[in-house]
């Protein structure tokens, strides 16, 4: 793909991006405490469905991978695996400080402090932890980004796969681990 065609969207892609923006199905990767903020966001107080958002059961069906907590070597492998099972176009949202810089676990030997070294994060939601208002606000931003064709993390991942893979291997030695408990 040339740079030119990469940035230019065809008409059908613009239409498609409109649909994608207003129908955001999420796969939540709830490793940390951040997940506790999702139920209030879903239910009547904030009602994320009014933006066309909703949780989905599997990464195959989802558009957004929402990572709501700190990442260890073990969980990062799973996050990468899940991300790679998602269908294009797909977006990653880092939720809370943990994904940004390791949060309160930043000095643990096992914590992966920066998610965007391993996966293309389209949007971070800062805070420990972010309130539902922050989440709603963030998704509003994400919707706008998608609509404008700016959320292109998935394409970035495709194009710079080697770099991402190098980082992943550097931290994890092995992404698709064979048998990490018994070997």
């Amino acid at each position: 793909m040339t740079t030119n065609s990469k940035d230019m969207r065809k008409t059908w892609e613009k239409i498609a991006d409109y649909f994608r923006a207003h129908s955001i199905w999420m796969k939540w990767y709830c490793t940390g405490c951040g997940a506790i903020e999702m139920p209030p966001t879903m239910t009547s107080r904030f009602d994320m469905e009014q933006l066309g958002m909703g949780p989905m059961a599997t990464p195959r069906q989802a558009d957004v991978l929402l990572i709501t907590g700190y990442l260890s070597a073990k969980t990062l492998r799973r996050v990468i695996y899940s991300y790679e099972q998602m269908q294009d176009p797909k977006y990653v949202v880092g939720f809370g400080s943990c994904t940004l810089n390791g949060g309160i676990y930043f000095d643990s030997y096992a914590t992966m402090t920066r998610l965007d070294h391993y996966l293309p994060v389209d949007l971070y939601i800062a805070g420990c932890m972010p309130r539902p208002e922050a989440i709603m606000n963030a998704f509003d931003t994400l919707i706008k980004m998608i609509e404008k064709g700016e959320a292109k993390g998935w394409r970035h991942y495709q194009e710079n796969h080697d770099w991402y893979r190098k980082n992943q291997l550097h931290s994890l030695k092995e992404v698709y681990v064979k048998d990490e408990f018994h070997e």
Partner: peptide, 15 residues
């Protein structure tokens, strides 16, 4: 809740 737009289902399908 307020709920989605009435044409949300179309958006979901086409998406």
């Amino acid at each position: 809740r307020r709920g989605p737009r009435f044409y949300q289902q179309f958006i979901d399908i086409f998406k």
